[in-house]
Design a protein around this nucleic acid. Structure first.
Lengths: 341, 341
DNA sequence: TGGTGTGATGTAAGCGCTTTCATTTGGACA
DNA sequence: TGTCCAAATGAAAGCGCTTACATCACACCA
């Protein structure tokens, strides 16, 4: 006990204000249950003592922390940085704070992070996608920790997200409508990543529906260089006139490779992205891509999770994606156009 | 009391393992102070009961939360997203978790966020830059909350950062060495932003040292379009041969504007950035910029803050910046070159 | 004027863990 | 085999707050 606690406690405030600790507590947590005159006295005492409630004690007694946890693959990816940013901004200020953890796309690490956040008292969780060990969902259910899934949709869980497959299908539809038939795709790694898989499947299914298939599909890690290499590889097949990319970073890489190969975009080859992050409007030409409502999603996810935490029912939210037609698409050149089937 | 707590407590574990609660606690917090045989029994009981310690109780009793808070202007800016990402990854897993808040460059909101994080029990804080109301520092001192400043340096506080002025001065030096004399700058808003101010001052001071000055300086908000507009404006002065930008986003905007004005970069005009974020290598031509060690900074900041939280002394860290010479710089065209003064 | 209902406030019992201090245990040593 | 010391363990006192319940004051109505 070499050092006495410097901070005023609720008892000090109560004593100074001449009320009970219960009243002090009420002033802070349910001000309208205290008569204004009393409240004024208490607030004055709080100010005088420079009091602020002890977090641990409050959490212990109220069984609530006001902390929400989020696990994302990485913040390096603008997609998640923006989504998390919007999510955080949408949380009622003062009421909730955001605990952020990243897992580097590693399912095992994601599990640890979820446990760590819950151990840190998270009242609720924001997770990315739905593809994970069912044991995790069981565990969350037992612990009664509400959660919202984002960047995906359609599962039996609560979500605020969008349809990766549909978004990509729309893009492929547009490319088909331009007349392309020899199409390749550069997909992100689909292993344990339902977003990447959804996009790939969405594209494949739409092609199949038209009796077509990709000439080739490269599945590569996230990254500019990764996209560039895959593109160079793919284009050794001289018949290919369009390359669908699983995200904007891969597309930007492909675009760079096209540059270096002295392929003219979009005259010689059409390249499309997905996400519509900043870089999509910085490339030359600017990237034709699928806009994902990252900001709206963050907001909706916050609202939904808040409801769940309060024990209310909350409807999942499916947000629309939208094609942003910029400069990297065109009809195939020097090739016979096919009528739409 | 309609619903009994579902979770096992330390008492349950102690009972099942046939030890006291103190021993259970020690098994969790100081395993080496318990004999292996006992520890095994306890661990077994913990597993059997699916026990995990209550966060609030732990925080209350130990006066520690293992939570670190960070306030950044925004996660939309890749610079902060990367730094925070690296910071989070560098925190000893399981030992600390990261509470993230953003303030949108608003000092008042930053203050609120700092208070909110401390109220949430943050054991320590990561803040951006040193430019803030002294009252905040006083308040943190009274509360004995350790903190580390990042993205800046040289103040009397603990920091892990770099020298904005020096980094920018180096860039201006390079531009001078190329022969440019009619130089303009597009700076971020310096109001309440020591990083932007440091960069601007660093550039100005270096010029002054050579007996020169900027032909013109635009101070504009962060953003692509913002940079584009400023550039167009600036270039109405036909004598300008180089435009120094306060960050990569402004530079990318300037580059886009140059494109639209059919100015050839770097032949007609040199454009430089600062930060070296992803977009710097996606522009065409790729951007010549100042690399900032965002990742290393995040790591160092984490290490430093951890030391401070443990009550040890920690040395501030000054990280070097580095010029990345890519494709947007060249000697001034059709102009007499000046010898270096 | 007394009964009664309503809203404000007080009383006090925990919440589940850590930690100090006391006690026990198990060897090492003579 | 008996002493003594260090290491291991146990007992119990909080940590500072919330909240169920009790109490009180007061206005209203019959």
């Amino acid at each position: 006990m070499s050092e006495k606690t410097v901070h005023a406690t609720v008892d000090d405030v109560a004593a100074l204000a001449g009320v009970s600790t219960a009243t002090v507590s009420r002033c802070l947590n349910a001000p309208d249950r205290v008569v204004p005159a009393t409240r004024a006295k208490v607030m004055e005492a709080i100010r005088a003592l420079n009091y602020s409630p002890n977090f641990g004690a409050r959490a212990l007694a109220s069984r609530r922390t006001g902390i929400i946890g989020a696990v994302v693959p990485t913040l390096e990816n603008a997609v998640f940085a923006h989504g998390i940013g919007a999510f955080e901004r949408s949380l009622p200020p003062g009421k909730f704070a955001l605990l952020v953890a990243s897992c580097g796309y590693d399912p095992e690490r994601e599990k640890q992070q979820i446990e760590a956040l819950v151990a840190r008292g998270a009242d609720g969780l924001l997770l990315v996608g739905f593809d994970r060990d069912p044991a995790i969902y069981d565990w969350l259910a037992i612990r009664k920790v509400p959660y919202v899934l984002a960047w995906a949709c359609g599962d039996s869980h609560s979500y605020a997200g969008f349809d990766n497959a549909a978004g990509m299908a729309a893009m492929v539809r547009m490319v088909l409508d331009l007349g392309h038939r020899n199409i390749a795709m550069i997909s992100g790694l689909t292993q344990g990543n339902d977003r990447a898989r959804g996009r790939l499947d969405g594209a494949r299914d739409l092609l199949a529906q038209e009796g077509l298939a990709f000439r080739n599909v490269a599945e590569v890690p996230y990254g500019l260089e990764s996209g560039a290499r895959a593109f160079a590889e793919l284009m050794t097949d001289r018949s290919i006139t369009a390359v669908i990319c699983g995200n904007d970073v891969l597309a930007a890489g492909a675009l760079r490779a096209a540059h270096r190969m002295e392929l003219h975009v979009p005259k010689d080859v059409t390249i499309t992205g997905f996400d519509d992050i900043d870089i999509a409007s910085i490339t030359f030409p600017e990237l034709t891509t699928v806009r994902v409502p990252h900001t709206g999603m963050g907001e909706q996810a916050a609202a939904l999770l808040e409801r769940l935490i309060e024990g209310k029912r909350g409807e999942s939210v499916l947000l629309p994606t939208e094609i942003v037609a910029r400069g990297t698409h065109a009809p195939p050149a020097a090739r016979k156009r096919f009528a739409k089937v």
